[in-house]
Design a binder for these strands. Structure first.
Lengths: 337, 337
DNA sequence: CTGTTAGCGCGTTCAA
DNA sequence: TTGAACGCGCTAACAG
């Protein structure tokens, strides 16, 4: 293995000079800089990130913390997209990244978690899929011991940024579009539209804003709205739809998975009402009907999250970032790959 | 951060003694061993894996190398299950693991890849989703510079093990079951059964064994078999089924995704013939019909892969490992979560 | 502008 | 059975 020492020798300079060139320090003559760079190229030198992490305080080592198990399998796609975006960005920014699951932290208190991360020289963490019941992890974030970026959790402090779409507006938008598509019915003297809103679990941070978005739309359009908690579960959404859905004009679901459940319930009942979802996962198409949904670009969100984390680790202060969302209509034919 | 030095001081012994206790060296008196262990517990000491990796040769650092992008999104589930199993096991075995994508290695030759891993003190690699076109990675494996475990690639050497199910037998089994379910038709004087086999891409290592399994079944049951290459694509399978499927008794697909394509083509043509798939992904259910498939436990495969890698890194020699598969029948109702 | 040096936390001889 | 001391590859003062 070729080390920094070899490069120094090859270039006829001191080790520290190589290090300085590597990190773009000022006060290096153009001459030695090129000398060192050619030596690096000739030897195919790659800095040892482990040694670097050990030696410096700002190791540039980060962790992706997620909880894929708690989710249904159908949601794997979301986490995979997160991971792809995050890991790609980490590589681009030359950050060492490890992927961790919530389950590994189970039973630890804040102090233990802190030691755990410190023992790996981790100084920054991106957290995907945290809910209100992950209180110890939230405590850890609050300590400010690590730079953190939270996905879909609206909390910030000096060392913590949050990043998400505007769930309130997104829910409003997709429900509005779906309902207005359906306006003709309304005009046939149908009275106020009857809506079934299947919300997510109350432990989810996105649940309240999405519900708010729906409520304000309901007020605006004077909708007759029934709100039920589907716990982000396809099965629950299915049952709720069987129970309350038959006489509704539109069914609005706070997730694609629940939208699938609702859609299938309607198919079983042999009625059809518009359904809309949230997330924009590919899976959608398989119900064989079309529906509107809020499309989030998880890859891009994760990519930005890592960029933001890097910013935090350089001493910038935490902030809230809103990403754009879009509305899409998914058909079966579209998703044929 | 509490270091080994603190533990040594707290226990009143030398640093090296603590290290020896940590690694279960012999020749440590029971007395000092407990003294050290209580000190560790009292201080909540966690060894710094970075320092350890730097200091020792056998760092215990491993990489998960996969290629999720090349796959269709619907396959994310498989990779997520792999990752879950692998990361869980790595944690259990106290191995530091990083997740890498093939794309990061693009353009590198073997020497560059070697340096790349060495620069991260990585000594073991688990590779998921490699195809015959990833020749440079295969070269890397062949050098024996790293301990490797290959998933679904039948290659072994001194430092490389392979792990997979028996694809030949699995394909045989699932096709056989699906066809025999259909035997009544045959007995109504229907002549030899007509089968459409939609195979995978020839760059896939699993394609040939699956095809073999199908061929030997065809011979055994004297089937009239048509073989087409679906390239593991839903769309291709759909088109092939539209073209060749209408007069077939059974359609056998080398992946679930292709089975979905085939199933949907049949639905469009308004005919129904049994279809079987391969993999056992949850997604299946959404076609709304039932079908047989080979279920692989990806989590478990990955878990075993990491165990095997650990074995290799301890100097054991490479070998081939076969995992069990099972046959399942998937219905829509089953997958409601 | 460049080189010398002291650690980072730990594993591992080699003496004691 | 234990401990002192060196080195892993690198960063970061500090001298020069």
């Amino acid at each position: 293995m070729v080390s920094i020492r070899d490069v120094a020798k090859h270039a006829g300079v001191a080790i520290s000079t190589v290090s300085k060139v590597l990190h773009n320090y000022p006060n290096i003559s153009e001459d030695t800089r090129t000398k060192v760079n050619t030596a690096i190229r000739e030897l195919g030198y790659i800095p040892n990130s482990i040694a670097s992490a050990l030696s410096s305080k700002n190791s540039g080592r980060i962790a992706f913390l997620m909880d894929p198990k708690r989710q249904t399998q159908a949601i794997d796609q979301v986490f995979m997209q997160y991971l792809l975006g995050a890991i790609d960005c980490a590589k681009e920014m030359d950050l060492d990244a490890v992927t961790l699951f919530f389950s590994m932290l189970e039973g630890m208190d804040v102090a233990a978690m802190t030691r755990y991360f410190l023992a790996q020289n981790i100084t920054g963490i991106v957290i995907f899929g945290m809910t209100k019941s992950d209180s110890t992890i939230m405590e850890l974030v609050e300590t400010g011991a690590f730079s953190c970026v939270l996905i879909d959790v609206p909390y910030t402090n000096e060392k913590t940024s949050s990043i998400s779409i505007d769930h309130r507006k997104a829910q409003y938008d997709v429900a509005r579009e779906t309902i207005l598509d359906n306006i003709p019915k309304l005009e046939k003297g149908h009275g106020p539209q009857k809506i079934l809103y299947i919300s997510g679990n109350e432990t989810g941070y996105v649940t309240a804003p999405r519900l708010e978005g729906m409520k304000s739309l309901a007020e605006e359009l004077k909708l007759d709205i029934t709100i039920e908690n589907g716990h982000f579960s396809e099965k629950n959404a299915r049952e709720l739809t069987l129970k309350y859905g038959s006489d509704k004009d539109v069914i609005v679901c706070a997730s694609d998975l629940m939208a699938i459940g609702a859609m299938n319930a309607l198919i079983d009942m042999d009625v059809f009402h518009p359904v809309c979802g949230f997330d924009g996962i590919t899976l959608m198409g398989y119900v064989g009907k079309q529906m509107n949904t809020v499309k989030q670009d998880f890859y891009s969100i994760a990519h930005h999250a890592v960029e933001e984390l890097s910013r935090l680790m350089q001493g910038e202060t935490g902030r809230e970032i809103l990403m754009p969302h879009s509305l899409v209509r998914m058909y079966y034919k579209d998703i044929i790959i």
